[in-house]
């Protein structure tokens, strides 16, 4: 692997997404989570209780931002109102990094609120790389792109998914948020070898991992983030860590979100798998102390 600036990003340990359903129960369980990922759009436009909880969490634990509406692959101009709101949240929360998906989520100013895949073409690589540079250039913290799950393969694609991902993040000079469940889901849905896919990625740029559950239907697997992580994805996680070393790892759960104790238990299973590969590696940069103690009272 070639060294990159993304190699030097801190290992934040094992975390979960900050979700409203856990606002009441989280304080008592805070110490079970090393860091939190904040879904940017859930907080960018809002005050009230979500913002109050976010401030407390950010004072107690490292936070990273993760978006779904940047629409980095759209041919529309970048949405300035979105970038302004995101910038405001970054200034307030001071995340270690921020991320979004390699996809489009809008066209002709209509928002889909979903992650629509891009064709794997040279034109798309150039388009996305330029826009990533523009977005990353405005922010005081690093930007990562995530490999999304996708269900359609365009006839006009010119390269493999792994080649596309490598070309985009290399030319954009951004980090890679590798969603291990997405690798599994895509490999199953599109009939490729998940380990060969991982081997073809620029792993030196991987700064964060996502783990999640999915839904198996008769002829397709849907990336639901609504179930426990399956053993095959856990195996793939170990395979990744053997090649990357310690990487901040997050359990995503967005539908049928279980209580916080179940989240802690599921995260412990991921942590155990990580320790099997890495041994005991302490997270970098966990804050806390007085603020966390105050909140727990």
């Amino acid at each position: 692997m070639t060294a990159t600036a993304f190699d030097e990003l801190p290992f934040l340990g094992y975390g979960i997404g900050l979700r409203r359903t856990h606002f009441d129960t989280l304080p008592a369980w805070l110490e079970r989570f090393d860091f939190f990922e904040v879904l940017s759009e859930n907080f960018m436009a809002f005050g009230g209780r979500p913002r109050e909880v976010l401030r407390r969490v950010a004072a107690a634990r490292p936070v990273v931002l993760h978006g779904v509406s940047l629409s980095i692959g759209s041919v529309d101009p970048l949405d300035e109102s979105y970038l302004d709101a995101l910038s405001g949240l970054i200034d307030e929360v001071k995340p270690r990094w921020f991320s979004d998906h390699l996809c489009l989520s809008s066209f002709e100013e209509v928002d889909y609120h979903d992650l629509v895949p891009l064709p794997f073409t040279e034109e798309a690589v150039a388009h996305v790389a330029e826009r990533v540079r523009a977005v990353a250039g405005r922010a005081p913290v690093p930007f990562l792109l995530e490999n999304p799950s996708y269900y359609i393969a365009y006839r006009d694609s010119e390269m493999s998914e792994a080649e596309f991902l490598r070309e985009v993040v290399t030319r954009a000079d951004c980090g890679l948020l590798l969603d291990v469940n997405n690798v599994y889901v895509n490999a199953e849905n599109h009939g490729y070898d998940a380990r060969a896919f991982i081997d073809a990625l620029p792993l030196e740029r991987v700064a964060q991992l996502h783990m999640a559950g999915h839904l198996v239907l008769p002829d397709v697997i849907i990336d639901t983030h609504g179930a426990p992580v399956v053993p095959a994805v856990m195996d793939l996680f170990r395979y990744v860590l053997e090649r990357t070393g310690p990487v901040s790892t997050l359990l995503e759960w967005d539908h049928d979100i279980p209580p916080i104790d179940v989240m802690a238990r599921e995260l412990d299973a991921i942590r155990t798998a990580g320790r099997e590969v890495l041994g005991d590696v302490a997270p970098d940069g966990v804050v806390g102390g007085e603020e966390a103690t105050t909140w727990r009272r």
Binding site: Y112, D114, V116, Y151, I152, A153, Y154, R155, D156, D219, V220, I222
Partner: peptide, 11 residues
């Protein structure tokens, strides 16, 4: 688009 209709229908 040259894609499977059932898969496009998911989106």
């Amino acid at each position: 688009l040259g894609v499977r209709a059932d898969r496009l229908g998911i989106y």
